[in-house]
């Protein structure tokens, strides 16, 4: 089996990526059967729109999970970065500068996350949990608990809800980033090292590679993605508000896991995550159509994640 294509194919079937796409197809069919009214470009358009936000956050989360870590600071990183942009633009700065500042914020937050993990060897779980709380407070302090009420700049709105050839602009941004991500994960040094760290960081270290830089990269991508999603969500909702990131913790992680990336790190990839993001969005849409409230959605998502992890991401027996 000395063929890259053959190996990709076997990865596809083995690591749950195929399961994810099969699940996606089933879900779409189920949705159309359940409510034929859904089978419209309008519905697909809406799903793509929302999936874009989740998919963009899931880029960094995929990388972070690939190295065996997790980023729990996404919700308030997203909110804080959005607030920075909104405040700057309502203060009269150019929209590009405001967006640049927001993205820079996300990158810096990601870098701080990485320092805790790579230098102090803290588990990302508690470290990013602390970061999330810190940013929650920072958001309140920064805006005095009153997010700017001024109009969202047109550019930001266009990016989020505009269309290009009838396709949501946000989805096109996601598509561009997705292609880039897949290429980086498969063809770049950084991508190669991510997988190596997730499987065996010691071996990479003993190969004379500074694994700390790779960890830094992964968390910075995650921070950047959260900030970008914050900008897009601002445009989508036409406002910033405290708690706008609350729904974006479990859902992107769910997308990554459903897409077949191993929660222990080392295997999986973004191709599966794309399917995962679409699945969670369609599931949410179906649950809403079925008039299941937020509570029911939370329970269903929790159960689905546990079921999928039980299916294909269990730890080896300690005695093996």
């Amino acid at each position: 089996m000395d063929n890259l294509l053959a190996r990709r194919l076997s990865d596809f079937t083995r690591h749950g990526v195929a399961v994810a796409y099969a699940l996606l197809a089933l879900l779409v069919i189920a949705a159309f059967v359940y409510d034929p009214g859904l089978a419209s470009w309008r519905w697909i358009h809406a799903q793509l729109q929302i999936a874009a936000f989740i998919g963009i956050i899931a880029i960094g989360q995929t990388m972070v999970i690939l190295i065996g870590q997790i980023d729990l600071s996404v919700p308030w990183n997203l909110t804080f970065s959005a607030l920075v942009m909104a405040t700057l633009s309502s203060d009269g700065y150019s929209v590009w500068l405001a967006m640049g500042a927001a993205l820079l914020c996300g990158l810096v937050i990601g870098a701080i996350n990485a320092v805790g993990v790579a230098v102090f060897r803290l588990h990302s779980l508690v470290w990013t949990l602390g970061m999330n709380a810190l940013l929650q407070g920072a958001s309140l302090v920064y805006t005095n608990a009153q997010p700017p009420k001024s109009d969202v700049p047109a550019v930001v709105r266009e990016m989020a809800v505009g269309n290009i050839f009838g396709i949501p602009a946000a989805a096109l941004i996601w598509a561009l980033l997705a292609v880039f991500t897949v290429v980086v994960l498969r063809r770049s040094r950084f991508g190669r090292y991510l997988y190596a760290i997730g499987n065996n960081e010691t071996a990479l270290f003993v190969s004379g590679v500074d694994s700390r830089k790779v960890v830094l990269g992964a968390f910075m991508v995650s921070g950047f993605g959260a900030a970008l999603a914050g900008i897009l969500l601002t445009g989508y909702a036409s406002q910033t508000y405290l708690g706008m990131g609350n729904d974006y913790l479990l859902i992107p992680i769910a997308a990554v896991i459903i897409g077949g990336t191993n929660v222990m790190g080392g295997s999986g990839g973004y191709v599966g995550t794309i399917a995962g993001a679409l699945i969670v969005v369609i599931l949410q849409s179906l649950l809403s159509t079925a008039q299941i409230g937020q509570a029911g959605k939370d329970v269903v998502f929790g159960v689905i994640i546990l079921a999928l992890v039980l299916l294909y991401a269990r730890e080896a027996r300690p005695t093996d």
């Binding site: 997988y195 065996n200 010691t202 190969s207 004379g208 590679v209």
Partner: peptide
């Protein structure tokens, strides 16, 4: 097994690990 190789990765990926650049 724990220091020399990343066992789940391919022969290719392991051999080139130290000289990827």
């Amino acid at each position: 097994k724990t220091e020399g190789l990343v066992l789940p990765m391919s022969v290719r990926e392991n051999v080139s690990m130290a000289t990827l650049p």
